[in-house]
């Protein structure tokens, strides 16, 4: 081995260092981009999942409140293609001496700016009780416009973010929740179910 050759290269040349740094920079940039995109996708997915869970929970609450009611006490009676965003009903507590004992009048609907879904008991009376179950209800149901037509093909015209329609003893409940994230993007989730009044 020639010792002189050994002395020839004690380290990296500036070109080598620059190329290495450029390559490392490129790899790091790509890696950062991938991680950022994965983080964004994860955040989106989690936000959608949270909204879906919320919609399912609220829909279950509404459905279970209505399922125990008497179909004849439901007011107003609205059939497709019309719908209502507010429903009053009563629950039968049983029979005493041949007479049906009715529970306090209950109501489910929208209040405030139309984004709050509430459940109320004795609404408008002294013993009024109001509980807001959700405050992210959309103005209109997903895909619907206020134009007198059925834009989203669900057989209802101009239905709001919460809508009820009656068919015999069955009530179909439709609901769209909307949430706007920090970047101004809105996310919508729509759920629907049908329940038949048991009493």
């Amino acid at each position: 081995m020639n010792p002189k050759r050994t002395h020839k290269r004690g380290g990296f040349t500036i070109i080598e260092a620059l190329i290495a740094m450029a390559l490392v920079g490129l790899v790091l940039t790509k890696l950062t981009m991938v991680v950022t995109q994965a983080q964004k996708a994860h955040t989106n997915e989690v936000a959608t999942m949270v909204l879906e869970d919320q919609a399912a929970q609220v829909l279950d609450r509404v459905a279970f409140a209505i399922i125990g009611s008497d179909a004849d006490t439901i007011d107003p009676v609205v059939e497709a293609p019309f719908s209502t965003d507010e429903l009053s009903f009563r629950i039968s507590m049983g029979v005493e001496e041949g007479e049906v004992i009715w529970g306090n009048p209950e109501q489910i609907g929208l209040r405030g700016d139309g984004s709050q879904l509430y459940w109320g008991q004795n609404v408008g009376e002294v013993e009024e009780r109001i509980v807001v179950w959700c405050n992210t209800v959309s103005e209109m149901l997903e895909g619907e416009l206020l134009n007198g037509y059925d834009d989203n093909g669900n057989s209802l015209d101009d239905e709001l973010g919460l809508s009820f329609d009656k068919n015999g003893k069955s009530i179909t409940i439709r609901m769209t929740l909307v949430k706007v994230d920090k970047e101004g993007r809105s996310r919508e989730v729509t759920e629907q179910t049908t329940v038949t009044c048991r009493n």
Partner: peptide
């Protein structure tokens, strides 16, 4: 599963009607 379970439940509700 959730979609299927809900569809089955809704069908039974329609039968009750």
């Amino acid at each position: 599963n959730a979609v299927a379970a809900d569809a089955a439940r809704v069908l039974i509700e329609e039968m009750r009607n």
